[in-house]
Design a binder for these strands. Structure first.
Lengths: 213, 213
DNA sequence: ATATGTGAATTGATTCACAGCG
DNA sequence: CGCTGTGAATCAATTCACATAT
C-alpha cells in the first residue's frame, strides 16, 4: 500500500520532527498538540490532523510521548536509513554546503562533490573529494549516491540535471532558480533564496496586506 | 486599497517573472499562458487565474506581451525600487551569500554583514564590510536597511531576530531551521535546505506514491 | 482560428465541534 | 477534567468550460 501524503503536510511533519528532536534533547517527556503547534507555527487542530499519518497515538488528557512520536515521524519520513548525497557544482555555495555543520546526527551523508572545472577537481577545497562530471555514472554506483545538491550556474542546470537522471539519481535538491524537467520517478525540491527575497519584497510594500503562509 | 495575494500565488508570480525575464533576454515578444505555464511548471488555467492580479491584459488569439507583463509583475512584486539587505552571521553560508553573483540586475543590494565574532568584524572576508551586532540599530538607519538574511547558528536565531525587529527591519529571510517569533508587521520567509532534504527523503522511499507540490 | 478572461464546478485543505478515552 | 481523534462544515484553491475578443 503506497502511502501518499500531500507535500504541504510533509513540510509540516518535517517541522514537527525538528521541534520534537529539540524537546527530546531537553528531556521533555510529553507534548500536547497545542504546544507542538505553537512551536511549529500552526494550530493544534492542524497538528492533530497531520499526525493521523503517523502511527503514534497520543494519550488523551496528557498529549503525545515525545520520544515515541519523534521516532515514528523519523521513520515515516524515511530518516532511519542513511541517504548518500553529492554536491554538483563546487562554487562558493557548493563549498559552503560541503562544510555545513548541521547535517548533524541526521541521516544525510554528503559523500563527494562534482565539477567541470579542472582546477577544482581532485583537490580538497573542502573536506570533500571532488570528481569530474563525467565520472558521475561510475561514482553514483560506487558510492551508492541517492541525492544531488545542485548548485551549478543557471545556464548549466538542466543539462546537469539530465546527467544526474541518467546516472540514476532519484532526488535533486535544486538550488538554481530553474524549473527542471525530469521524469516522474525523479523528485525535485526547490531551494531558491532569491525567490524568497522577492516574496519578501512583495509583502514589505506599504499597500500590501499581510497574508500568512 | 491594500492588495492581498495568497502567499502561494506570490510564489508562482515570482516564477513567472523569472521566465519572462529570460524570454525578454531572448527577445521573444509574445508568450501564451500555455508556454508560460510549461516553463514554470503549472497549468495554463493556473497561469491565467494568477495573472488576474497583474494589470497586463493579454491579447486574445496571441498571448501576453512579454515586456509588458514582465514590467507589470515586477512592479506588482515591489521590485521596481531598491531594497537594502544585510547578512546577519558571517559564517561560511553568510560569506557565500555575500559573494553570490545572481542578485544580478535585481533590486536587492546586499550592503553589509554583521557578526558577534570580533575576529570577523571590520575585515573584509568578502567584498562586504562587517560590523558588530551592537552597531545594528545605527547602521540600519544609516544604510536604510530593509531586509536581513539570517544565517547565524540555530541557538542564536531567536535573539538575533529580536535585535533585528528592534532595530526596525521588517523582512527576514531565515536560513536557520527555526520558526521565529516576530510581531505581525515583520515578515519572515523560510529558506531551509535541510528541511528540503528531508522532504526529498520521504518521497524517495520505495513505498511512497509521488505527489506533486 | 486561437488564446484570453471568468463564472461555475470541483477538488482539496483547514477549522470546527464534540464524542471518546485516560 | 484535559486532550486526543475524527466526522462534518467551512473555507480556499484549482480545474473546467465556454463566451469573448482579436
Amino acid at each position: 500500500m503506497p502511502r501518499s501524503i500531500p507535500s504541504i503536510t510533509v513540510s509540516r511533519l518535517v517541522a514537527y520532527l525538528r521541534v520534537l528532536t529539540d524537546l527530546e534533547l531537553q528531556q521533555v517527556d510529553y507534548v500536547t498538540s497545542d504546544e507542538l503547534g505553537a512551536a511549529a507555527g500552526v494550530s493544534a487542530h492542524q497538528v492533530r490532523k497531520d499526525l493521523v499519518h503517523a502511527e503514534a497515538p497520543g494519550t488523551r488528557g496528557r498529549g503525545y510521548t515525545v520520544a515515541l512520536l519523534r521516532r515514528e515521524l523519523s521513520s515515516l519520513l524515511g530518516l532511519t536509513r542513511p541517504w548518500n548525497a553529492a554536491i554538483i557544482g563546487m562554487g562558493r555555495l557548493g563549498q559552503a554546503l560541503a562544510d555545513y555543520p548541521y547535517y548533524g546526527n541526521s541521516s544525510f551523508n554528503v559523500k563527494t562533490g562534482f565539477d567541470i572545472d579542472p582546477s577544482k577537481i581532485g583537490q580538497r577545497l573542502t573536506s570533500l573529494p571532488v570528481y569530474a562530471m563525467d565520472e558521475l555514472p561510475q561514482r553514483v554506483k560506487e558510492l551508492e549516491l541517492d541525492i544531488a545538491l545542485l548548485t551549478v550556474p543557471v545556464s548549466a542546470a538542466q543539462s546537469a540535471a539530465n546527467s544526474l537522471v541518467e546516472a540514476g539519481l532519484r532526488g535533486i535538491l535544486n538550488f538554481t532558480p530553474t524549473v527542471l524537467a525530469v521524469p516522474p520517478q525523479v523528485r525535485v525540491e526547490q531551494v531558491d533564496f532569491v525567490a524568497g527575497l522577492k516574496r519578501l519584497a512583495f509583502y514589505l510594500q506599504p499597500d500590501v496586506a499581510p497574508a500568512s503562509g
